[in-house]
Design a protein around this nucleic acid. Sequence first.
DNA 1: AAAAAAACTGACTGAGTGCTCAGTTTAATT
DNA 2: AATTAAACTGAGCACTCAGTCAGTTTTTTT
Lengths: 192, 192
Amino acid sequence: MTRKQAILQAATRLFSEKGFKDTSMARLSKITGVAQGTIFYHFKNKEELFISILEDFRKSIINEIDRYTKENKFDTGLDMIEGAVAFYLYLAGAMEDRFLLLHRHEAYEFAKINPVCRDLLEFIYGCLINIFEQAILLGQKDGTIADVPAKKIALLIFTMVDGVVRFSTYELYDAGTLYDELINSCRKILQK
Amino acid sequence: MTRKQAILQAATRLFSEKGFKDTSMARLSKITGVAQGTIFYHFKNKEELFISILEDFRKSIINEIDRYTKENKFDTGLDMIEGAVAFYLYLAGAMEDRFLLLHRHEAYEFAKINPVCRDLLEFIYGCLINIFEQAILLGQKDGTIADVPAKKIALLIFTMVDGVVRFSTYELYDAGTLYDELINSCRKILQK
DNA sequence: AAAAAAACTGACTGAGTGCTCAGTTTAATT
DNA sequence: AATTAAACTGAGCACTCAGTCAGTTTTTTT
């Protein structure tokens, strides 16, 4: 792993754990075992470092979704929804730190003033919501899912699943114990 | 309005808009037209100011919920759910800044090290989730709602409704255009 | 081996931070 | 009118921060 990658990795962890503002470059340099100057040699400033993390996130998500859609084929759209929920929960676990970053507010604040950040966030959210929308559209084709507005219902399901992830990260409620109810609720919303 | 109230009000707005860390006491004093020292005369430190905001929030929520339960009586539990969703969306609009504060991460971070903050957050979230749980329990008594685990489903519905509020505040999707689907989805989840 | 380029260092800077406190003004009480 | 108490002020303190830069080390190219 190059120094640049090491800095990026440690920054991802710190930004998601402590937040952007609460992570100092001094601390980041200490943890990565690199001089402060080196960080600024690789990344113009703190904000560009943040953008790089989001770019990395986007790449990872694209890869994961690619792999998922290739490896998993479902008989019906309704089954695909269950797969999509499970996949989302898997993703959130596998990329825990980046999801935490996404659940923070700082990214949105930054997106307001930085178009690159805004585009990245929109793309990432688009990918995540699309997982559910595609399943709904498929189910409506094969007749297993009722004639609901696909995009809107995808948003609602996304929000519900993402909320469960939030409960987990805040340690308020374990995702596992809500899994059955989550799947059942999705099915009820979508069933004919 | 007393100076103390003015400080509290301005701090609520700034903390929710800019975040705790990104709001300086200098700026707060400038906006309220009060000397910095005055803020520290009324509040021991920045963190206690934050706690005071949460305490204020708790009081407001208790009042609003009290008023709501007194003014609104529903025939069935299933109808009550629709009322609960509408009420939550109303609350989130009426207390926009405080909900934004709740949607930030800072509060949870602070809750980890401050028991008072943790208790306040737990209480506030308890109130909000309870709105939905009570409706479900009533519906199960009068037979309009299926025999689902009330607390868990209340959490899921809460998370879905709260997600819609989030979409609104991030200006990704308007709450109004999702309202019908939100209500329908809730009904489908709960119907026998 | 020499030269050039890339990678890296860490002391330093200046702007900004939360908070203090000696002192002033205003309000309440005697 | 005199005294006490509460409310308020803002210059100043100790500290943290992102970012800089002159200089050093390592790597690549000639």
